[in-house]
Amino acid sequence: MAIKGEVVIDKERCKGCGVCVVACPNKVLALAKNVNGKGYNYSEAIIDNCIGCASCAMVCPDGVITVYKVKL
């Protein structure tokens, strides 16, 4: 059984602290080269390797990450 996850990041509320980047066990996240309206390099998923563990969301101080998961 495979697990497929997906994160939805509210990039306008993200402050680009990068805590989620280190928290992700599968190195899915990275800080974007672009900035949001506040000037922060927001976090984004860069590879399709999310398992929906929500570790990123757990450590996010601003609660900007929503996590989905399906068992295939």
Partner: peptide
């Protein structure tokens, strides 16, 4: 997979 039934975590 972005569907309410698959939601793991939200604010």
């Amino acid at each position: 997979i972005i569907k309410p039934e698959n939601l793991v975590y939200k604010r």
